[in-house]
């Protein structure tokens, strides 16, 4: 029995009904699969929870934080909702695009770049999430430094 199977059984035990474990199980599987959910991950989660892979896919594809395609080691997400937009978010996005040589929505090498909806940091715009850790008050001028820093580190804390 795989380790994932056992861990999912533990998650399952936290809930009165095992279906509730599907999101945390998918989150765990994604973490174990390099930040995204390959076909095999769906089959494993489904098996561990007595669900079908199709059901797990219907769940994962509903939520933005599940990735259905491979992602880079560093996931950079720039909030471009109103408050960040008013404070130069687009310039931040463009700075990342030129620094990384790719467009938002793409993955190349170690980096994935995304624009995202409000990250809940509007008072400290622009918010940039690097591997899900939020950086506040980011300006276009900060981008080169962030990228350089990430190029020098491995996966993990952004």
């Amino acid at each position: 029995m795989s380790a994932l199977y056992e861990e999912i059984q533990e998650i399952r035990a936290r809930y009165p009904e095992s279906l509730s474990a599907v999101m945390p199980a998918l989150q765990l599987a994604q973490e174990r699969s390099g930040g995204w959910l390959p076909e095999e991950a769906f089959r494993e989660v489904a098996d561990a929870l007595d669900l079908t892979p199709a059901y797990c896919l219907s769940i994962a594809s509903f939520y933005d934080m599940f990735r259905l395609e491979p992602v880079g080691e560093h996931m950079i997400e720039v909030c471009t909702n109103i408050s960040c937009g008013l404070n130069g978010a687009q310039q931040v996005v463009e700075a990342f695009e030129s620094e990384l040589g790719m467009r938002a929505g793409e993955t190349t090498g170690a980096f994935s770049l995304r624009t995202v909806e409000c990250l809940g940091g509007c008072g400290w715009a622009t918010i940039v999430a690097v591997n899900n850790r939020h950086r506040l008050n980011v300006q276009a001028g900060d981008v080169a430094g962030i990228v350089a820093e990430l190029r020098g580190t491995g996966r993990g804390e952004g």
Partner: peptide, 15 residues
């Protein structure tokens, strides 16, 4: 405008 050309999120799961 401060919001000029602001890029909305690219749909996550659509190929």
């Amino acid at each position: 405008s401060s919001l000029d050309h602001l890029l909305a999120p690219v749909a996550m799961h659509v190929h």
